[in-house]
């Protein structure tokens, strides 16, 4: 699990990439900021009406987040929240949830 997030971070080596990749827990920590609503490790409470993110393919989550960020996808709050994270952070978050069961 940790190895996967480290690889995801390494794959991103951009301006901030080196700093991000240095911390193997960064993806985990960032994804935890979503857990209040989307459940611990993305396992949302069933029937509570909020999307589970665990096991969702990374590309799918990233596309949704990009659409929220650009305003292409209407939302109640995610269009406002997605703008608070960098693209690199969203990439780590989507990768982390994809690896969860």
């Amino acid at each position: 699990m940790k190895r996967i997030s480290l690889l995801a971070a390494l794959a991103l080596l951009g301006a901030q990439g080196a700093a991000l990749a240095a911390d193997p827990n960064l993806a985990r920590n960032l994804a935890a900021t979503c857990a209040n609503c989307h459940g611990t490790n993305g396992n949302a409470v069933k029937g509570a009406g909020i999307d589970a993110l665990a096991g969702v393919p990374k590309d799918k989550t990233l596309q949704k987040l990009a659409d929220f960020k650009s305003g292409d996808k209407p939302a109640s709050i995610m269009h406002q929240i997605a703008k608070g994270y960098t693209d690199e952070q969203l990439d780590l978050i989507a990768g982390y949830f994809a690896a969860q069961k």
Binding site: A19, L26, T33
Partner: peptide, 9 residues
């Protein structure tokens, strides 16, 4: 971690 993030809803 030197780059923590928090959010509120």
């Amino acid at each position: 971690s030197p780059t923590p993030v928090v959010m509120n809803t």
